[in-house]
Design a protein around this nucleic acid. Sequence first.
DNA 1: TTCGTCATGTAATGGGTTACATGATTAC
DNA 2: GTAATCATGTAACCCATTACATGACGAA
Lengths: 190, 190
Amino acid sequence: MKTSGMLELPVLGLLKSRDMHGYELRKQLTAMLGPLWGVSWGSLYPTLRRLARAGAVVKLTDDPSVASSNRSGNQRRRTVYRLTPHGEKLFVQLLEETGAPVDQERFSLRLAFFRYLDPETRLALLERRRAYLQEKLAQFKANLQDYKGRMDRYSLSLQSHDMAATQNDLAWIDELIISEKESDNHARSD
Amino acid sequence: MKTSGMLELPVLGLLKSRDMHGYELRKQLTAMLGPLWGVSWGSLYPTLRRLARAGAVVKLTDDPSVASSNRSGNQRRRTVYRLTPHGEKLFVQLLEETGAPVDQERFSLRLAFFRYLDPETRLALLERRRAYLQEKLAQFKANLQDYKGRMDRYSLSLQSHDMAATQNDLAWIDELIISEKESDNHARSD
DNA sequence: TTCGTCATGTAATGGGTTACATGATTAC
DNA sequence: GTAATCATGTAACCCATTACATGACGAA
């Protein structure tokens, strides 16, 4: 099983809170990920099909949110999806991602569902992220050191900016770690 | 003709300075783009094939950099590529990219070859980038305004951080614009 | 002689983008 | 009545990743 694809995780995460159909999923996704991330139909529906084939979600032909009213026939045609127990497991698995280091986008996707993890796992993932960013930063520094003389102004500016951005990311992660530890302490002292 | 793909532009750009074979191209690419960008063979060689098929580069069976020495036979087998006039045109076309707004990665790839553009085009591209980032920023603000109340701490932190990063990008572009105008003035006053 | 680097590719797989196709309902 | 939104998909194309396959050369 590959279960790659960017959308698997957020789709499962949204379905965890309630059943939804494709159109609604897309609206939630664009709201959640910011309006720039264009989630296209040609990417969303195949993702749902894959998840259904893998047994992570099931199709419900009827929309259960309109239970009592709307009897006879002509409701809008919808395909509502529901998370299965196996889907729940898959979700956690994707969220914890013990695999290869991950780019900023995939990390963001994870972070958006951090509330579903227990505090220790959250901390562990944040620390791992921190280590990764630090390594990246070290590589930036080494690279700048080595090639500084041979780069033109544009490349130099670019590399410096990218390095600064990585430093910002790192500082942000540090904040998250601190606030995580704090709320952890508060919870313990209750 | 599509000519998409991330590697077309940097490959053409590198071949503009001198003929190179695939292996060398890869080394230059990883040095230039930072050591994180893993350029894989399965992506590089097909790119070269596409460029050759499009007439943007030609294969030179012999390596011209070792012109005088190494007569008889047993040199290492290499395929050296040279940019054609059509390749030059394609390069400028890709660099100016009058098309759709572009993500950070593609923009970085462009910026790394800005020295090949004339000052007015550089300024125009920077201004276009600036406008795009400002629009993105506005969307971030609107999105935060709308959904602030319904987001958990992680999503909120994420959106705020992304917005701050966009503001940093914007400030950086502004610096580039200013320094561009300055060197333009200096050039005029000569 | 064996390991690392130089050097060039192909094949399989899979996912994203874009365009295409369809049709019902709501609001003006 | 017509335009916008709701709603669901399919098909073609293309590109990136990964794994596979090969082989020469230099150094230890």
